[in-house]
Design a protein around this nucleic acid. Structure first.
Lengths: 193, 193
DNA sequence: AACCGTTCTAAACAAGTGTTTAGACCGAAG
DNA sequence: CTTCGGTCTAAACACTTGTTTAGAACGGTT
């Protein structure tokens, strides 16, 4: 379970406080529903500072996304370096979502709101990996199932609490889920569709 | 591929037009980002009519959700009647999402915005089915993988176009995906985690 | 014809939105 | 000390939001 890729989630100073508050607010409420004043309040800053540092609400949002995308890519990069097996890719994706559940929400919202048009770079490396290592239609079907199974856990997370009898994001539950996913990834590789 | 459950998606008259426009707008933009005026315009109606018929924006949204929830439940009901196998449940869920892609977006947004607190009835039958037919932790893990794999296809749908080389919601692509899901559901049942 | 409740409209309302402005503050350089 | 560029604030800006209001139009009943 890799962590501490050298791309800190936080940043010092006012700019960093704004970025942190924005990531939290955007992931919780979505872009439109988030208010600049709520973000600035939570960062202990004047609303005008957001325009001073970022140029506007939209630009701030894009900064948050680009920030997330950089961390996802770096994570996938080291996974491929470790050997581009389905299990490694699945593990890297799982860890990314597990360690930054905010990001799962944020990326999901972005996908719902803007498709993939708005940030074409966002999933490009992921797509490249998929076509490279899960070629053909059958391979693609398997990849979709695997990555869906990974994402599904975090998407349905709010509902899973009483189903699992424990916090789905607790390290115990996550470890259990992760090992199931790894096993699934191996099982799915030898699966002819 | 069942369809035409006797619960029409449309309704006649002004109230029905508003409901249709609201479902479209809410699923496309989310609750907060949707504007009452946009909905009323698209329904060829005065904004005031929304309050006249529904009592407000929030109440209109709840009407849309309750409407969706009714159709989902009825769909799961007939699947269970057909025999509560994993394949039947998976197929019913797949068909619901395939035939009403709006609903996938709407339910996903609702889950992101409000967890499950806001409409506790929404996923209750689905949860009951899960605990009933996928008992124990291992069974739950399998169910999560299966339903994640189903939902994942529709969630990532905007990205899948160029990956699949065809419209992911075309009947060909859907049929191919569905048969893979059914096969997966059978494979996953005999899978010890 | 006069009355009625229902349906609908146009206009206004207060509150909140993102953004801009004018200027204060402050530490460092000349 | 003065000046200057960067940082920051309070107030105002124009605009959109959801909702309310007063009343018109309509169709059916007495």
């Amino acid at each position: 379970m890799h962590q501490n890729i050298n791309m800190p989630i936080a940043e010092d100073g006012v700019r960093g406080r704004i970025l942190d508050a924005a990531r939290e607010e955007f992931s919780q409420r979505g872009f439109e529903a988030s208010s600049v004043r709520a973000i600035s309040d939570s960062a202990s800053v004047t609303p005008a500072m957001i325009n001073y540092y970022f140029g506007g609400k939209r630009a701030l949002y894009e900064a948050v996304i680009v920030d997330a995308q950089a961390r996802l890519h770096s994570r996938l990069g080291v996974a491929v370096a470790d050997g581009p097996t389905a299990a490694n890719l699945a593990g890297a994706y799982f860890d990314f979502l597990a360690e930054e559940p905010q990001m799962q929400r944020l990326l999901l919202r972005e996908m719902l709101d803007g498709g993939v048009e708005r940030f074409p770079e966002l999933l490009r490396p992921l797509r490249a990996l998929l076509t490279q290592h899960f070629g053909g239609d059958a391979g693609l079907q398997r990849a979709l199932s695997l990555f869906g199974a990974i994402a599904g856990y975090f998407i349905y997370e709010p509902v899973l609490g009483e189903l699992l009898g424990e916090d789905p994001l607790s390290s115990d539950a996550l470890a259990r889920r992760r090992s199931h996913i790894i096993a699934l990834s191996k099982k799915i590789e030898e699966f002819e569709s």
